[in-house]
Amino acid sequence: MARSKITLPPDPVIEAYKKAVDVTLLQENLRLTVEERFSKLMAMQKFAEELRRAGKKLREAP
């Protein structure tokens, strides 16, 4: 159903950002199933929330 091939010309700003993309992370992710990608995303969210909680506690400490 989805069309193939991107129709927009290369954007110089995006091309500059592409140089900073961590391809190893992408390769790792592309090996996962869709469910595994979502599970990883939820685990990252949980981790980020825990870090925020810890940071808040740290800032509130006397």
Binding site: I6, D11, V13, Y17, K18, A20, V21, V23, L30
Partner: peptide
């Protein structure tokens, strides 16, 4: 911008 760059890398791959 960073997200688009990553998506375009995925498309290229």
């Amino acid at each position: 911008f960073e997200a688009i760059a990553e998506l375009e890398k995925i498309l290229e791959a």
